[in-house]
């Protein structure tokens, strides 16, 4: 499981750096692949061009993304035979009711609000890491490949 990648979909470079820092601080050693928007995330997941598709252990996705929003991206992930079972966690700023409803309607596995307090954020990412990388079980067919 150490080899499994985490796909972080985040357009804000600050947030990206902070998320990576928080994950590292909470002893998550998995390789983190970053996509800057929904379209990039999908091309990584579906393996467009000469890239082979990646199968991350968990996708941490921001809600507000350029080009294609987090919820649209999620809908595409759920619509694809190979990726529909992948755990997707909305890791976002807002706790607006409408965002949560839309995310769950689109089939999100978890909705987590990023705290402003970095210490708190680190503890959140640590819990996410423990849960999705260690505790959570998935069938053999859906087990991610280390890539």
């Amino acid at each position: 499981m150490i080899n499994e990648v985490i796909l972080l979909v985040e357009d804000n470079p600050d947030d990206e750096a902070l998320a990576i820092r928080a994950l590292t601080k909470s002893n998550v050693t998995n390789r983190i692949v970053v996509a800057r928007d929904g379209v990039e995330a999908l091309s990584l997941l579906f393996g467009e061009g000469d890239h082979s598709p990646i199968t991350p252990a968990v996708i941490l996705m921001d809600l507000k993304l350029p080009k294609m929003s987090g919820i649209e991206t999620l809908a595409h992930i759920r619509a694809n035979e190979r990726t529909r079972g992948l755990p997707v966690v909305m890791l976002t700023t807002s706790d607006e009711e409408i965002d949560m409803i839309r995310s769950y309607d689109a089939g999100v596995n978890s909705y987590v609000r990023k705290p402003i307090d970095f210490a708190e954020f680190t503890s959140v990412t640590a819990q996410l890491g423990v849960y999705w990388l260690l505790l959570n079980r998935r069938p053999q067919a859906m087990t991610p490949i280390g890539n």
Binding site: D14, T92, D95, K114, I116, F118
Partner: peptide, 22 residues
């Protein structure tokens, strides 16, 4: 407006807090 506040106003605060910590 509220939606934008919920999303956009908090984001820089996370940077301020996070990078101060770093």
């Amino acid at each position: 407006f509220a939606y934008s506040v919920a999303h956009d106003l908090r984001t820089p605060l996370r940077s301020i807090n996070g990078f101060s910590d770093a």
